[in-house]
Design a protein around this nucleic acid. Structure first.
Lengths: 182, 182
DNA sequence: CATGCAGTTCAAAACGGCTTGAACTATATG
DNA sequence: CATATAGTTCAAGCCGTTTTGAACTGCATG
């Protein structure tokens, strides 16, 4: 949830390895995924793999999406780590190929779980620290301590909302996403 | 949901207008609010007003949070527009003062409603367009159209999840936030 | 209407995250 | 082990966002 600016017109006028409809769809997925807090290009790579439904090499991805060698390497490693792309070695082939694993939400869940919760935990710890400092300070009023406690409640509530969000996205979006399995 | 890096140690070593516990708490709120997709300093200004519980002038905020004159002006206008800060004119005073309105979630709801939904709508439109283009292209396979449809489902699901998220944050976090009213 | 202070605007600077590409490592092959 | 090709790493550059600060507007006052 940040500022998202449109890519898409910007994509026009490239060497063009992608069909028009492919690049529209790929960018759209890039935008959704960015909305979920990931990199646009992680979504674009996944979308390419998913749409083509064949295992592509890093070099092909690099060419089709006009990304750099190094970038593709890192993006693929992210997708692989999150279990949404699969590295396969085709029999007589010299390089790795990648396929889309279809549960894209796996990615959202993993990463959100691993980073957002520690983030909120840290905020809660800070607020608790602030309250303790304030309580040890003779000049602090009761009302101030009270307000700090309320701020802690705010962080707790945020954590709760996030948890709920994950859970519901698991059920609701997850349910929808499962259409991808096939 | 983006990259959040710690401010806080970074804050150390300033002219220091804030008590230690105040700056810890204020930065913590800045971090939560950034998580919700706003500017850290919008949260910090709100937190200062809330903790102090008196109406402050722009000049005081500027000094305490070490922000620029122009910055404070813009931040306050944002907060006011979203209804989380109140501009008051004290009787014999020459300048405006600001108080915290306590429902910080009002801010989240407003902005999320006004920008996230149009964002998702746009994505859905793009995917629909891609599918139509693909359908008009003789080389497109049935399976590809199928995959595009599934991607549309993904965007729909995202919209649904967002709606649910807003609603639950209204009930759940909203309920918690109400502690702030007093 | 000159002066001063509060508040706003916006071009430019600072900042931070993302991407690039050159140097490097790993691996396969003759 | 020399060569070639695939894959990784990371410092430097790019680019979008946020912040700054100087110029400006508005308004009150003598």
């Amino acid at each position: 949830m940040k500022g998202y600016l449109w890519q898409h017109e910007a994509t026009a006028g490239q060497p063009k390895e992608l069909l028009d409809w492919e690049s529209v769809a790929i960018d759209a997925v890039g935008n959704v995924i960015e909305f979920w807090g990931f990199k646009r290009n992680q979504g674009r790579v996944w979308a390419l793999l998913y749409l083509r439904d064949v295992a592509l090499t890093a070099a092909e991805i690099e060419k089709d999406l006009a990304l750099s060698k190094g970038g593709v390497s890192m993006l693929l490693r992210d997708l692989e780590r999150w279990g949404v792309a699969l590295r396969v070695r085709t029999p007589g082939d010299t390089s790795w190929r990648y396929r889309a694993e279809t549960d894209l939400l796996k990615m959202a869940r993993r990463v959100i779980e691993e980073r957002e919760f520690s983030f909120i935990a840290r905020i809660r710890a800070d607020l608790e620290e602030a309250r303790k400092l304030a309580e040890n300070d003779a000049t602090t009023t009761k009302a101030q301590v009270q307000r700090l406690k309320r701020m802690e409640t705010l962080a707790e509530a945020t954590e709760k909302a996030l948890r709920l969000f994950l859970k519901t996205s698991r059920l609701d979006v997850g349910g929808m996403f499962e259409v991808f399995r096939s």
